[in-house]
Structure formats: structure tokens, C-alpha cells
Design a binder for these strands. Sequence first.
DNA 1: CACGATTAAATCGTGTACGATGTATTGTAC
DNA 2: GTACAATACATCGTACACGATTTAATCGTG
Lengths: 146, 146
Amino acid sequence: MKGEAMLQLDNQLCFPLYAASRMVTKLYQPLLEKLGITYPQYLILLVLWENDELSVNEIGKKLMLETNTLTPLLKRMEVKGIVKRTRSKSDERRVIVKLADKGGALKQSALCIPLELLEGMTNQFPLERVGRLRDDLNALLKALSQ
Amino acid sequence: MKGEAMLQLDNQLCFPLYAASRMVTKLYQPLLEKLGITYPQYLILLVLWENDELSVNEIGKKLMLETNTLTPLLKRMEVKGIVKRTRSKSDERRVIVKLADKGGALKQSALCIPLELLEGMTNQFPLERVGRLRDDLNALLKALSQ
DNA sequence: CACGATTAAATCGTGTACGATGTATTGTAC
DNA sequence: GTACAATACATCGTACACGATTTAATCGTG
């Protein structure tokens, strides 16, 4: 492929990745709106539902986000009563994030979300392709993070 | 898969999509920094290099972005001397975006970017998988936009 | 031709992202 | 133990994204 052709939007990986990410986020939105949370806030809940308590850094590693993104995000979630933030006694630098009552309760309402989303997607896009896409993306992530 | 398991980060499509998109954007950054542009600005240049002049709306359709994102973005690019914005004579509602001198010149410097990026990527991630990923993402985009 | 509906941008407010920098705490080497 | 590096967050500034609303121009129908 010539350099010229490679600059075409269709031939690049970057654009479909960027557009698909935003588009899928929008798919989640009506479902998350019912829970009163945003998409990044949902991601934080996903990792907190799997782990009782995590430091800001540990959340950051799982979601590949820096503290400059997480700190204000977590503060907004604390104001909403979704998470609690406390300094670690053993290491005063660390801030421990736990689910607050509301955050734990949201899990029940969220259980249906992945399936609902898949259903909305597989109307036009076959399920096995979703699986392949996920695996390829995870492989890409792994490859790029070294 | 149980609802519980579907809430795991690894099993969802949304997270790898979100993380991979941000990670690939970061791959572009050192290359784009040399040109003095950001990643969304690069996308706008890609479509303007393919089309001499486009209205804000037409750019928006190609990149799936709204005017509330594009207007300030294009204004920043205008300040830098990369694009020109003029009201259409035939329809005063439309704003026509064209390349300014600097924007045209950037194309030469950008020709190497797609290849450089591919090379950085295919060290760990095979080329045919990049192609499959791109095709799957484009198919997903098409499926979701109807 | 008039006038309500539609369209194209722009504006506003909120919420991410993230590079760069600051600050407090802990680890470590001498 | 003390100074210095490393670590964990927080803060600041800039640039997207995008829902909601506004403004101005054009279209369509009677």
C-alpha cells in the first residue's frame, strides 16, 4: 500500500477503534443513566464489585488510568454515595476505595446490563465475531503494554 | 455465562475497546507532537486531505462527531493556521472548512505515520490480525449505525 | 408572500483524559 | 538517624466529547 492510500480513513486501524469505542459507550448510556452513573464510573464499579477494596493506584492499573483522572472521578462517586475513600492507616499515602451502600446495591441493577447490551449488538453483528473482537483487542492491549 | 461472570472486566467487550482506543491514541502522540497537532486534529486532517473542502456537518458525519465537538476543535486549528473556516455564500448556515497552507504542508510529514505506527505495533501483534481487527471494527460500526 | 418547520453552527455545562507539576509519606543508603 | 530517592495522590491547565439549548438561515406549504 502506498503512503497516500494508508492515510485514508478506512485503511487505518486508529479511526474505527476510536469511533467504535465512543459508539459502544453511547450504547451503555441509556442503561447507565437509570443507575445514575457514567461509563467510566461503571468501569470503576466493575472492578470494585470484583475486589472489596482497592487503592487508587490499583484501580488505575486495572483500568489503565492515571490518578489525575481517577481522583476527581472517585470524588464525584463519593459525593453520590457510591464509594468511600479513606487513607490507609499502614501507609498514609494510599487512599483506599471501597463500595458504599449505594455502590453495593447498584450491582443487582447492573447484572442485566452486559446481556442487554449484547442483545442490542448481535442483531446485526454475530456473537462469535464479538468474541473474536474482544480476544483480538485484549491481545492488542497485552502486546502494546510491554 | 452467569450474570455475575459477565460483569467481569475481562469478559466484556466494552473495556478492551475503551482501553485499546486510548492506548493507540497514545502511540500516535509522539509522532503527532512533531506536527504540533492532537489526535482528533489528525483525524480532521485525514478527511481534509481526501476532500478539498467540507462543511462542519460533513466532517462530523465522516468522523461521527457533533458540531459541539468540532466547532471549538476547528477554531483551535484555525488559530494554528492549519485550516480556514468560511461561511458558504450559497447557504449562509454552512461553514466551509478548507486546508490552510500549513495544513496542506503537514501532509508530507504525515505520510510516514501509518507505516511507523504499524511497525511499532506488529512487533508483538501480527499484521493479519491488525487487518482482521480493523475489518471487525468497521463491521461493528456499520452494524451499530443503523 | 407568510410563517412554522427544518437545518447548520454555535454556545453552555459537565465529565472525562492526560501531561506536567506539587506535596506528603515512606523506603533506603550511608 | 539523616538526607535523598521513590511512591501515592492531588492539583492545574488544556483538549476533547456530548447532551441540551440557542441562534440564524433556509425550506416547504398554504
